[in-house]
Design a protein around this nucleic acid. Structure first.
Lengths: 195, 195
DNA sequence: TATCTCGCATACGCTCCGTATGTCAAGTGG
DNA sequence: CCACTTGACATACGGAGCGTATGCGAGATA
């Protein structure tokens, strides 16, 4: 690969890393582009050339974090004994991951406000489609009742994400986590064919 | 009441109304305070005197809209035949109300980003506590299984709010609404004692 | 080696927020 | 009825930040 392209890729990575830190600590609106780029050893020129505008930078950061979450959730789900347990495990993984302040601030709070509805994002959409596919399989096997798989997948994901947000702002997140997961599993069992 | 206080109350109402429109149409960040106050026949001076800062104005707007939603949901729930149906009806009411673009943009997108986690807001918290109380009653009656009522209430509300967000950005919200409500009811039935 | 390309830095203008100060109507006491 | 005070709001100022237009120099091309 040419020197120019590799340096450009490195700079992109530097900017995303600096933005990730700045957005997490100060929030999207309060984060200064001048400060952010200086932290990465660059200027706003590099930023606008690579990402178009501030929004574009946030989109890149969200994409990165969200992909990491989806990948982790998938790996957790793969270890489950069956498809249903995988579904629950993925939900639990999402809840746990979202306890990370970085994820909360960037993906759950600023992301939707700046980039719009999360279910439209490429990464979240992939996750949603994955959940939907699993649900469809479970329906075909008669394990889950027949409902709109898209809506069901969205409800599960939405409940998990929201739970993380609520959990994070509770007084004692670690203590509430098992109770929340228990309630989440019970809620999800509503989809099962035989109560 | 003195003339001064009534005029002040009127001006507050004017500003909130103008802000509600501006925030809904342009989003919180893009809405200009100068433009907003001019629309109300005032200046930024009035705004800072009444609400402290831009955030304070958003908080007042959110409080108003959120209270309207809670009140509506409660009135819908009151018409239900039993407590369980009331719970479902309130969830459905939330989902339907959140299809309003004004509610979506201000309460679901900008609100959390600027004001922080919704479950900490006075209005949402009241709604959450109301749901929790209903759940506790249902548990005492043996209709709902024993789980942490706070977590369960949060999961139901969260799923409903998220569903609205997703529904609104779908291609045909009106067509998906019944399927979504069906899935929501099924999901909620996971809490029931006898599947 | 000469020229071109383009990723990035620099400089400028514009908008917007928050505060400090001014102003005038509404209240108050004599 | 009038001087005085209060306070709700308008006006003016300073600072910060974003987006764009322009300049530059290292790497690519022939």
């Amino acid at each position: 690969m040419s020197i120019r392209l590799t340096k450009m890729a490195e700079n992109r990575e530097k900017l995303i890393a600096a933005a990730r830190k700045a957005f997490a600590q100060q929030g999207y609106a309060a984060a200064s582009m001048d400060q952010l780029t200086a932290e990465a050893g660059l200027t706003r020129g590099a930023l606008y050339h690579n990402f178009g505008d501030k929004r574009g930078l946030l989109a890149a950061v969200v994409e990165q974090i969200d992909s990491e979450m989806a990948e982790y959730a998938k790996s957790v789900g793969a270890k489950a004994v069956d498809a249903w347990q995988a579904l629950l495990a993925e939900g639990a993984a999402y809840i746990e991951k979202a306890l990370d302040p970085e994820v909360r601030r960037i993906v759950l709070l600023d992301g939707p406000a700046v980039l719009g509805d999360p279910s439209q994002w490429p990464s979240q959409n992939r996750c949603l489609q994955s959940t939907r596919a699993t649900l469809e399989q479970l329906m075909a096997d008669g394990i889950v009742q027949a409902v709109d798989p898209e809506a069901a997948a969205m409800l599960l994901n939405g409940a998990a994400l929201n739970a993380a947000l609520w959990l994070a702002s509770s007084e004692n997140p670690q203590a509430m986590l098992p109770k929340t997961l228990e309630a989440f599993n019970l809620l999800a069992s509503g989809f099962l064919a035989n109560g």
